[in-house]
Amino acid sequence: MTDFTNDINNMRDAKRQRQITREYQVYFGLIFLAAVPSCTAIWAYGLVRHAKMPAQGPIQSAIGEARTITPCIFWA
């Protein structure tokens, strides 16, 4: 006989995951927007201080910050 209980649980988890994903994207966007000014200031300081372009630009740095901080909100 086939056991369908795992499929039912997966369907419930998939619906819950969609709701978390939307909320995750909202928080990610807010944290990204908050991180852009500080990352730009740090990038400009590094540019002036070392007289060369930093490895990452301010946008890429802000994305990295948002990718680091956002999961801490949900899975801490």
Rank of each mutant, 00 (worst) to 15 (best):
R22M: 05
V36H: 01
D7A: 15
S38M: 14
N6L: 10
I8A: 11
N9M: 15
I59S: 09
A51N: 10
R16G: 07
E65V: 14
S38T: 13
P71W: 06
D7S: 15
E23H: 12
G57N: 07
I59C: 07
G46E: 07
I20M: 13
R16Q: 13
Q60K: 09
Q19T: 12
A51F: 05
G57D: 12
D13Q: 11
T5R: 13
I59W: 06
G46H: 04
G64P: 01
A76G: 13
I8G: 04
G64N: 05
R16N: 14
P58Y: 11
R18L: 14
A35D: 02
V26D: 10
C39K: 03
A62S: 12
I20P: 06
V26N: 12
A34N: 01
V36Y: 00
Y24T: 12
R16A: 15
C72K: 11
F32S: 02
Q56M: 12
Y27T: 07
A62V: 06
A34H: 02
K15Q: 10
I69N: 09
A34I: 05
Y45H: 04
A44Y: 08
F74V: 05
I63H: 04
F74L: 12
I31K: 00
T70E: 00
A51R: 06
Q60I: 08
S38L: 15
L33M: 08
L33P: 00
R16W: 08
Q19F: 11
W75N: 10
L30M: 14
A51E: 05
I69G: 01
I42G: 01
A51K: 11
P71N: 02
S38K: 12
F28Q: 10
A76R: 08
I8N: 05
E23Q: 13
L30V: 15
K52E: 14
D3W: 00
